[in-house]
Design a protein around this nucleic acid. Structure first.
Lengths: 239, 239
DNA sequence: AAGCGCAAATATGTATCCAAAGTCGAGGGG
DNA sequence: CCCCTCGACTTTGGATACATATTTGCGCTT
């Protein structure tokens, strides 16, 4: 209650910067709310099953319920939260089965995507990928796991950028990688997993160089399956 | 303007039946709005690029803008509409490339799904599938294309029902089949396509009987690719 | 006559309001 | 003592109100 004060404050600021979705510069309140909630969910701030109430979140952010509602609905559609039987939403419990499903889906989609990429990739792009792998290895040698993670992310970003024109594939894959972050943050802790990931990337580039679409698909499937196993391993250890 | 009258009327009716999302019986206004818009989009009532304005739609349905907005956002996420640069949404132009993308995605997902199904299907379920194929053939002999379509849909429904526990796969596939309807409605017209679809289903069942996961994946890929070609063919003829 | 600019209309984003449904607890009855 | 019921409170869905932004068209100026 009494969030009016905060509301007015934020409102004023927002107006000053860029009231609605001025697209270029500032994000709309809804977008900010959405991003805020998403990052909180992915970073694990909310424990699974914990109730997320519109009102409460609205107050916390100093905005009205409207953008919060829209953000929650969007998150629900993306599968990051699920409706509670009674009311409200919560971050779903992630059973090992669901984690497995998620990775299986990635296995299939990313495998096929690499096959597509194989047919259109240029030598220059391959060099870029190799450069990134090199940087990841350098970070690994310095035991900077978080840096390795950054470079590995970059590696996949470059790949996905190559199918940006295939919007459905692109959106789907990018979305799934977001969910995966929830698990990866634990996985990351292990040097072994980081090394395996880099090895996988080396193999991917090799397959791309050979211009063998079928090999590409298989290699990527193996890579993601490896990631799945690392994630499941870490997850079960955590409990 | 002056939609107030309608609004009050519908409001009263709604309240009488089941105001909010009484889940079991009646749909919430948002859900009804969503379904309404979706069926209108899929049935091709809106021409591609045509602007969909909240206010206008709200008035047409006799509801306020709130549920319309939520429905529009949902449709956007599903890819059935896309935001216009300025404001509002529109049904995207479906370039042959996009249709191809859509089917490619289905190819991959359904292929993998059949592989999964292969490992868990029972003889009884196979019999059910064969029964449905038989009925589709009977309908085909009587040249009842719409009936063939129903049975073919049933065939895929049964298959997808078998991976209902893999929620991500399930949702994704079911969703994509919805989009496909937009094209299939034309494709359907052709007996040749109907026959090819049934043949594909026969092959699928055969692969399932052989319990060969790799074969299943390949056969399903071929089947969907066939559907893609039929769809593209029809589409280009239509223009 | 043409182009620039301003103003009005329209649409969208956000806040608030209202009604209805669900939840929880207290009190009474079995 | 436990269960059932009724009522108040919480929370959500939907409507409306309001501010802002965009677009379009009209008028003025050059």
């Amino acid at each position: 209650m009494l969030s009016c004060r905060h509301t007015f404050k934020l409102d004023t600021i927002m107006n000053g910067i860029s009231s609605a979705r001025s697209k270029k510069n500032g994000l709309s309140v809804r977008e900010k709310t959405y991003e805020y909630l998403k990052s909180n969910i992915l970073s694990g701030r909310f424990t699974a099953g914990e109730r997320l109430a519109e009102e409460h979140l609205a107050e916390e952010l100093g905005v009205s319920r409207t953008p919060v509602r829209e953000a929650l609905h969007k998150l629900e559609l993306e599968g990051l939260i699920e409706p509670l039987e009674s009311r409200g939403f919560c971050v779903p419990h992630d059973s090992p089965e669901e984690v497995e499903d998620l990775f299986d889906l990635r296995t299939v989609l990313e495998g096929y995507t690499l096959k597509l990429i194989c047919e259109r990739i240029t030598d220059e792009q391959i060099e870029r990928l190799e450069g990134v792998i090199g940087k990841a290895e350098a970070s690994l040698r310095r035991k900077r796991i978080d840096e390795v993670f950054q470079w590995n992310t970059e590696f996949h970003d470059i790949l996905h950028g190559m199918v940006a024109d295939k919007r459905r594939f692109h959106n789907l894959i990018v979305n799934m990688r977001k969910y995966v972050l929830r698990y990866r943050k634990d996985t990351l802790q292990y040097l072994g997993a980081a090394k395996r990931a880099i090895d996988g990337h080396r193999q991917i580039v090799l397959a791309l160089k050979l211009k063998d679409p079928e090999l590409c698909e298989r290699v990527m499937r193996v890579h993601i399956r490896q990631a799945k196993e690392d994630a499941l391993q870490t997850n079960s250890e955590a409990r």
